[in-house]
């Protein structure tokens, strides 16, 4: 590393200061190495839960654009699967049509906020927005999804995400203009509160669930994982306080 000696003639500094400069010059590579390592570890520690606010939306937007291009190609390979899940979702929606019921639909009572004064009208509790998945990982330690829908399309961080079957997918943690990063259930810090609907009448189990993908020594690991999958696939988990996307 060239040292700008002409800027600091030796006579102007006391010897201690000169020694510092000499030290930096001598060990510049080591110091740079330590600095970069420290910066990386700072990023890791600082971002364990939420994505970095400074780089976050910029890198998010950039990687989102690239992801979108590739998901366009990939989308064709999944058309069959997409179609199947759409047929399923459609069937489910048909089953919910009010015109098909002769008696008042009592199942919709679940969604009525009882604190409201007017108990005859129903209120919309959740808004559902469709969004396309442009990136998804399942095998990493911390798994994320990226949706092609951002602040410009009414997505805020903290919203819940469900799949076509109504199962919980995760929570939006970071939003840029056109893309949203979703912390999936398969994330170390993912805590989704769940409730078993069948058991709610008398003994309402309520538990915070956490995904522990690699703790092989964790005693109830298999049980927890099985329960988590069952809960997710039988759509009994509810996401409180979040607006569903």
């Amino acid at each position: 590393m060239p040292f700008p000696q002409f800027l600091f003639p030796n006579s102007k500094f006391p010897s201690q200061v000169r020694n510092i400069f000499l030290f930096i010059r001598r060990y510049f590579n080591l110091l740079l190495f330590l600095f970069l390592q420290g910066f990386s570890i700072y990023l890791i520690v600082h971002n364990s839960r939420y994505h970095n606010a400074i780089f976050g939306s910029i890198t998010n937007q950039l990687t989102g654009k690239v992801n979108e291009q590739f998901s366009r190609v990939e989308y064709y390979f999944q058309l069959k699967k997409t179609n199947d899940s759409l047929v399923k979702a459609n069937a489910k929606l048909y089953n919910k049509l009010k015109a098909d019921f002769e008696l008042p639909d009592t199942t919709s009572n679940i969604f009525v906020d009882s604190l409201k004064v007017d108990s005859i009208e129903t209120y919309r509790k959740y808004n559902y927005y469709p969004a396309k998945v442009v990136y998804n990982s399942v095998a990493a330690q911390n798994n994320y999804l990226v949706l092609s829908r951002g602040t410009a399309q009414q997505v805020r961080s903290g919203m819940g995400v469900i799949d076509p079957n109504g199962s919980v997918v995760g929570v939006v943690t970071d939003v840029s203009k056109d893309f949203a990063v979703v912390m999936s259930l398969l994330h170390k810090d993912s805590h989704i509160e769940g409730m078993l609907l069948k058991a709610t009448r008398k003994q309402a189990h309520s538990a915070g669930m956490a995904w522990r993908p690699i703790s092989l020594t964790f005693p109830g690991y298999r049980k927890v994982r099985k329960w988590l999958w069952e809960t997710a696939s039988y759509q009994v988990a509810t996401v409180p306080a979040y607006q569903k996307v």
Binding site: L32, S40, I44, H51, N52
Partner: peptide, 24 residues
């Protein structure tokens, strides 16, 4: 070399939404 390596790792981390690991 180190600066370019950091850039490489940081780029991959940006795709994984988990900055720091590959960069380090």
């Amino acid at each position: 070399q180190m600066l370019v390596a950091f850039a490489l790792g940081f780029t991959l981390d940006s795709f994984h939404h988990n900055p720091g690991f590959h960069a380090a």
